[in-house]
């Protein structure tokens, strides 16, 4: 007898938490064979598992290597399911451009944020590391981003964050695009100082912050449209 949808979702979720890449892909194929909704399987299975792995990270059970391997399992499952997502069920909550600001080549934190944002359903455009301010702005404009996420590990590069915000103002885009920042030397105080919309201390908090900023942006958008 075929497994129930709920059991399959639970197993998908577990395969991510247990960092079982092959198992996640096998389970995803089962979802396809059983003609279960692929989007739901990502949301309630794979992304749910990534969310649990993220909580374990917050609780110091998992660290960076574990989170990266769990993400590989999530992506292996998503890879199988991607082409089966029904057109009407893709309700991506928003588009976000992320990257590490120019001068810094540390991108572990940014990669974790990307994973969590994808688990939350965001369409993430990752510019990588050592990204000049103008590239953030150009990309955000090109893809009509809702949010720009800036990361740095180095005090050296913090001025680049302020520059992105200035350039958004200059391009007349500041009202439309929310800016969130994070990274080891960054604080809420610094976010306020440079006029960023939000700061998050870690990858899990970045996911929640992005959802919050998106909601704010949509409310403002609907107000200005009416």
């Amino acid at each position: 007898m075929a497994k129930s949808k709920e059991i399959l979702f639970q197993e998908l979720s577990d395969s991510v938490v247990e960092m079982e890449e092959n198992k996640a892909a096998d389970l995803a194929r089962e979802v396809v064979e059983e003609k279960i909704d692929a989007y739901e399987a990502i949301d309630k299975g794979l992304a749910h598992g990534m969310e649990r792995a993220g909580r374990l990270f917050e609780e110091d059970e998992y660290f960076v290597p574990e989170l990266l391997i769990a993400a590989d399992a999530m992506y292996a499952g998503i890879e199988v399911l991607r082409q089966h997502i029904a057109a009407d069920s893709s309700s991506a909550p928003g588009r976000i451009v992320i990257g590490v600001v120019e001068g810094d080549t540390h991108d572990i934190g940014k990669n974790l944020v990307k994973i969590i944002l994808e688990a939350k359903g965001f369409e993430v455009h990752d510019l990588g590391r050592d990204v000049p301010p103008s590239v953030f702005v150009a990309k955000a404009k090109e893809i009509k981003a809702d949010i720009i996420g800036l990361s740095t590990l180095m005090t050296t590069t913090m001025a680049g964050m302020a520059r992105v915000i200035e350039m958004l103002h200059e391009a007349g885009l500041r009202e439309r695009i929310k800016v969130m920042i994070g990274g080891a030397p960054i604080s809420q105080g610094f976010a306020r100082k440079i006029g960023a919309d939000g700061y998050s201390a870690n990858a899990m908090a970045a996911g929640d912050l992005a959802l919050k900023l998106l909601a704010q942006r949509r409310i403002l958008g609907s107000l200005s449209a009416s």
């Binding site: 960092m19 960076v64 290597p65 574990e66 990266l68 391997i69 590989d72 991108d107 572990i108 990669n111």
Partner: peptide
Amino acid sequence: EPRSFFKELRK
């Protein structure tokens, strides 16, 4: 490549 290396610490 650091992402690979950090994973290889476990895998």
